[in-house]
Amino acid sequence: MDLNKMNNDKKLNLCKFYFTAGFALLPLVWAINAIWFFKEAFRKPEYEEQKQIRTYVIYSAIGAGIWAVILITWIVIFQLSREEWGEFADRISFIIPLGD
């Protein structure tokens, strides 16, 4: 989809749809929303729907940011203490690395 070929009304709908979809534990959708609509929200000359798009973009970015922080923290903790946790770590793993 090329945003340039879309009218503003459709852009807003699309941005809103991506924002709501992100609530279904899909942080990547938020991240995509924030990046994809960044130009629309901040760089383009003002138009009627831009303000709303900007809100969605900002919230999507914040949401994706929080997710990133949580995920990174968890991954670091898990990788550092996987061996120490023993059985618990094995039970919550889908793939257990061989040989350590």
Partner: peptide, 27 residues
């Protein structure tokens, strides 16, 4: 001579038998 099993017997027996493992290998 890369060895699959590690740590101790209880660990490797458990890992060989975990059902949720996507890549079940007897270690």
């Amino acid at each position: 001579s890369f060895m699959f099993g590690a740590k101790n017997t209880p660990t490797c027996i458990r890992r060989s038998n975990i059902a949720t493992n996507l890549n079940p290998v007897r270690v």
